[in-house]
Simulated assay, not measured.
Amino acid sequence: MIQSRSEAVHMSKPVIAIVGAGPGVSAGVARKFGGHGFTVVLLARGRESLDLQVADLRERGVDAHAVTADASVKETLVTAFAQIESEFAAPDVLVYNAGANTISDPSDLAEEDLLADFTVNVAGALVCSRLVIPRMTERGTGCLLFTGGMLALKPVASRASAAISKAGLRNLAFTLADELAPAGIKVGTVTIGGVVSPGTFFDPDLISEAYWDLFNGSDQTEILYQPA
Protein backbone atom coordinates (compact mmCIF):
# COMPACT_ATOMS: atom_id res chain seq x y z
CA MET A 1 0.00 0.00 0.00
CA ILE A 2 1.36 3.42 -0.95
CA GLN A 3 1.57 5.87 1.95
CA SER A 4 0.53 9.47 1.63
CA ARG A 5 3.23 12.06 2.36
CA SER A 6 1.54 13.05 5.62
CA GLU A 7 1.40 9.41 6.76
CA ALA A 8 5.06 8.88 5.92
CA VAL A 9 6.13 12.04 7.73
CA HIS A 10 4.01 11.20 10.77
CA MET A 11 5.85 7.93 11.23
CA SER A 12 9.10 9.83 11.79
CA LYS A 13 8.28 13.12 13.52
CA PRO A 14 5.33 14.25 15.65
CA VAL A 15 3.72 17.58 14.81
CA ILE A 16 2.61 20.35 17.15
CA ALA A 17 0.37 23.16 15.84
CA ILE A 18 0.40 26.35 17.91
CA VAL A 19 -2.43 28.77 17.19
CA GLY A 20 -1.98 32.39 18.20
CA ALA A 21 1.80 32.17 18.00
CA GLY A 22 3.72 35.08 19.46
CA PRO A 23 6.88 35.90 21.42
CA GLY A 24 5.45 34.92 24.82
CA VAL A 25 4.01 31.63 26.05
CA SER A 26 3.70 30.06 22.62
CA ALA A 27 7.37 30.74 21.87
CA GLY A 28 8.35 28.93 25.05
CA VAL A 29 6.11 26.01 24.14
CA ALA A 30 7.56 25.92 20.62
CA ARG A 31 11.11 25.78 21.99
CA LYS A 32 10.17 23.07 24.49
CA PHE A 33 8.40 20.73 22.09
CA GLY A 34 10.74 21.53 19.22
CA GLY A 35 13.68 20.64 21.44
CA HIS A 36 12.10 17.22 21.94
CA GLY A 37 11.94 16.48 18.22
CA PHE A 38 8.55 17.87 17.24
CA THR A 39 7.92 19.58 13.94
CA VAL A 40 6.55 22.94 15.06
CA VAL A 41 3.92 24.73 12.99
CA LEU A 42 3.09 28.27 14.11
CA LEU A 43 -0.22 29.88 13.15
CA ALA A 44 -1.09 33.58 13.43
CA ARG A 45 -2.35 36.47 11.30
CA GLY A 46 0.92 38.33 10.77
CA ARG A 47 3.34 36.69 8.35
CA GLU A 48 6.26 38.94 9.23
CA SER A 49 6.08 38.08 12.93
CA LEU A 50 5.69 34.38 12.13
CA ASP A 51 8.76 34.42 9.88
CA LEU A 52 10.86 36.00 12.63
CA GLN A 53 9.73 33.35 15.11
CA VAL A 54 10.43 30.55 12.66
CA ALA A 55 13.91 31.93 11.96
CA ASP A 56 14.69 32.04 15.68
CA LEU A 57 13.50 28.46 16.17
CA ARG A 58 15.50 27.18 13.22
CA GLU A 59 18.63 28.82 14.62
CA ARG A 60 18.02 26.67 17.70
CA GLY A 61 17.80 23.55 15.56
CA VAL A 62 14.01 23.28 15.62
CA ASP A 63 12.10 22.10 12.55
CA ALA A 64 9.73 25.08 12.42
CA HIS A 65 7.23 26.38 9.87
CA ALA A 66 4.67 29.17 9.55
CA VAL A 67 1.06 29.11 8.36
CA THR A 68 -1.11 32.22 8.36
CA ALA A 69 -4.60 32.05 9.83
CA ASP A 70 -6.99 34.30 11.73
CA ALA A 71 -8.42 32.69 14.85
CA SER A 72 -11.61 34.73 14.43
CA VAL A 73 -12.27 33.48 10.88
CA LYS A 74 -13.21 29.81 10.64
CA GLU A 75 -12.47 29.54 6.93
CA THR A 76 -8.83 30.52 7.41
CA LEU A 77 -8.43 27.91 10.13
CA VAL A 78 -9.96 25.20 7.96
CA THR A 79 -7.56 26.09 5.15
CA ALA A 80 -4.57 26.26 7.51
CA PHE A 81 -5.13 22.85 9.07
CA ALA A 82 -5.69 21.26 5.67
CA GLN A 83 -2.33 22.72 4.63
CA ILE A 84 -0.63 21.37 7.76
CA GLU A 85 -1.97 17.88 7.18
CA SER A 86 -0.98 17.98 3.51
CA GLU A 87 2.53 19.34 3.98
CA PHE A 88 3.48 17.72 7.29
CA ALA A 89 0.96 15.49 9.07
CA ALA A 90 -2.18 15.73 11.12
CA PRO A 91 -1.09 17.38 14.40
CA ASP A 92 -0.33 15.16 17.36
CA VAL A 93 -0.63 18.18 19.66
CA LEU A 94 -2.75 21.33 19.34
CA VAL A 95 -1.92 24.33 21.50
CA TYR A 96 -4.50 27.11 21.41
CA ASN A 97 -2.94 30.37 22.56
CA ALA A 98 -4.96 32.99 20.67
CA GLY A 99 -6.51 35.75 22.75
CA ALA A 100 -8.41 39.03 22.58
CA ASN A 101 -9.22 41.39 25.43
CA THR A 102 -11.40 44.47 25.36
CA ILE A 103 -10.62 46.52 28.47
CA SER A 104 -13.92 47.68 29.94
CA ASP A 105 -16.09 47.37 33.01
CA PRO A 106 -19.04 45.06 32.33
CA SER A 107 -21.65 47.84 32.44
CA ASP A 108 -19.78 49.65 29.66
CA LEU A 109 -18.86 46.58 27.63
CA ALA A 110 -20.46 46.62 24.19
CA GLU A 111 -22.00 43.29 23.29
CA GLU A 112 -20.28 43.29 19.90
CA ASP A 113 -16.89 43.60 21.63
CA LEU A 114 -17.74 40.78 24.01
CA LEU A 115 -18.80 38.57 21.10
CA ALA A 116 -15.69 39.44 19.08
CA ASP A 117 -13.43 38.55 22.01
CA PHE A 118 -15.37 35.36 22.70
CA THR A 119 -15.01 34.34 19.06
CA VAL A 120 -11.22 34.50 19.32
CA ASN A 121 -10.87 33.20 22.87
CA VAL A 122 -13.35 30.34 22.85
CA ALA A 123 -15.04 29.69 19.50
CA GLY A 124 -11.69 29.63 17.72
CA ALA A 125 -10.45 27.05 20.22
CA LEU A 126 -13.50 24.90 19.49
CA VAL A 127 -13.04 25.23 15.73
CA CYS A 128 -9.37 24.20 15.92
CA SER A 129 -10.20 21.30 18.22
CA ARG A 130 -12.86 19.99 15.86
CA LEU A 131 -10.38 20.17 12.98
CA VAL A 132 -7.86 17.88 14.69
CA ILE A 133 -10.05 15.56 16.75
CA PRO A 134 -11.10 13.21 13.90
CA ARG A 135 -7.54 12.20 13.01
CA MET A 136 -6.55 11.96 16.67
CA THR A 137 -9.52 9.67 17.22
CA GLU A 138 -8.46 7.51 14.27
CA ARG A 139 -4.97 7.15 15.76
CA GLY A 140 -6.25 6.65 19.30
CA THR A 141 -3.92 9.32 20.63
CA GLY A 142 -3.52 13.09 20.65
CA CYS A 143 -3.37 16.11 22.91
CA LEU A 144 -5.28 19.41 23.06
CA LEU A 145 -3.77 22.14 25.24
CA PHE A 146 -5.26 25.57 25.98
CA THR A 147 -3.74 28.72 27.44
CA GLY A 148 -5.99 29.85 30.27
CA GLY A 149 -5.82 32.70 32.74
CA MET A 150 -6.56 33.31 36.38
CA LEU A 151 -9.35 35.71 35.38
CA ALA A 152 -11.42 32.56 34.86
CA LEU A 153 -11.26 31.97 38.60
CA LYS A 154 -10.78 35.50 39.93
CA PRO A 155 -12.66 37.95 37.67
CA VAL A 156 -11.73 41.63 37.61
CA ALA A 157 -14.30 44.26 36.57
CA SER A 158 -12.05 46.10 34.10
CA ARG A 159 -11.24 42.81 32.37
CA ALA A 160 -14.81 41.52 32.22
CA SER A 161 -14.59 40.36 28.62
CA ALA A 162 -11.41 38.36 29.16
CA ALA A 163 -12.77 36.95 32.43
CA ILE A 164 -15.91 35.70 30.71
CA SER A 165 -13.90 34.25 27.83
CA LYS A 166 -11.32 32.53 30.01
CA ALA A 167 -14.11 30.97 32.07
CA GLY A 168 -15.64 29.73 28.84
CA LEU A 169 -12.32 28.36 27.59
CA ARG A 170 -11.71 26.60 30.90
CA ASN A 171 -15.11 24.91 30.71
CA LEU A 172 -14.50 23.97 27.09
CA ALA A 173 -11.26 22.27 28.15
CA PHE A 174 -12.93 20.35 30.96
CA THR A 175 -15.87 19.20 28.85
CA LEU A 176 -13.59 18.15 25.98
CA ALA A 177 -11.44 16.24 28.46
CA ASP A 178 -14.51 14.39 29.72
CA GLU A 179 -15.69 13.58 26.22
CA LEU A 180 -12.39 12.61 24.62
CA ALA A 181 -10.66 10.59 27.34
CA PRO A 182 -12.21 7.30 26.10
CA ALA A 183 -10.75 8.03 22.64
CA GLY A 184 -7.23 8.31 24.07
CA ILE A 185 -7.05 12.08 23.59
CA LYS A 186 -5.55 14.13 26.42
CA VAL A 187 -7.00 17.60 27.04
CA GLY A 188 -5.50 20.13 29.39
CA THR A 189 -5.37 23.81 30.22
CA VAL A 190 -2.63 25.88 31.82
CA THR A 191 -4.22 28.61 33.93
CA ILE A 192 -1.57 31.32 34.21
CA GLY A 193 -1.82 33.47 37.34
CA GLY A 194 0.34 36.43 36.41
CA VAL A 195 1.94 38.57 33.71
CA VAL A 196 4.21 36.64 31.39
CA SER A 197 7.71 38.14 31.48
CA PRO A 198 11.16 36.70 30.73
CA GLY A 199 13.45 36.27 33.70
CA THR A 200 10.62 36.00 36.23
CA PHE A 201 8.54 33.16 37.67
CA PHE A 202 6.33 33.72 34.63
CA ASP A 203 9.11 33.24 32.11
CA PRO A 204 7.74 31.55 28.94
CA ASP A 205 10.32 28.78 29.13
CA LEU A 206 9.30 27.98 32.71
CA ILE A 207 5.60 28.08 31.84
CA SER A 208 6.24 25.71 28.92
CA GLU A 209 7.11 22.99 31.43
CA ALA A 210 3.45 22.90 32.47
CA TYR A 211 2.37 22.21 28.88
CA TRP A 212 5.00 19.49 28.61
CA ASP A 213 3.81 17.91 31.84
CA LEU A 214 0.21 17.82 30.64
CA PHE A 215 1.28 16.29 27.33
CA ASN A 216 3.44 13.70 29.05
CA GLY A 217 0.56 12.05 30.83
CA SER A 218 -0.19 14.14 33.89
CA ASP A 219 -3.56 13.02 35.21
CA GLN A 220 -4.55 16.65 35.69
CA THR A 221 -6.80 18.51 33.30
CA GLU A 222 -5.66 21.86 34.67
CA ILE A 223 -2.36 23.17 35.96
CA LEU A 224 -2.66 26.38 37.96
CA TYR A 225 0.58 28.15 37.17
CA GLN A 226 1.15 30.52 40.06
CA PRO A 227 3.66 31.04 42.88
CA ALA A 228 3.24 28.65 45.81
Rank of each mutant, 00 (worst) to 15 (best):
F215A: 02
I16F: 15
R170L: 15
T191G: 00
A30R: 09
D178V: 10
D113S: 10
D219P: 07
V190E: 04
A71T: 00
T200A: 05
S158F: 02
H10G: 14
T119G: 13
L151N: 14
G184V: 14
T79P: 01
A152H: 06
A100W: 02
P182K: 15
S104K: 09
G199Y: 01
L151G: 08
L153C: 07
T76D: 03
S218K: 02
Y211I: 02
G22L: 03
I192Q: 13
V93L: 08
L131V: 10
D56M: 01
M150C: 12
F118W: 14
G217H: 07
L43N: 08
G24V: 06
E111C: 05
G24P: 01
S158V: 07
A160S: 07
M136P: 08
A64Q: 00
I133D: 09
G37V: 06
E209Q: 15
T221Y: 08
D108Q: 07
K13F: 08
D105W: 00
R45C: 03
I192N: 05
L144W: 06
F215W: 10
T191L: 02
A162G: 07
R31Q: 04
A116L: 09
G28S: 11
T68W: 00
A71L: 00
F146S: 05
D219E: 13
N216E: 12
I18N: 07
F201W: 03
V15R: 11
D178C: 14
A163P: 06
A90V: 01
L145I: 02
D219S: 14
R170E: 06
Y96M: 12
L151R: 04
R135G: 08
I223S: 03
R31V: 01
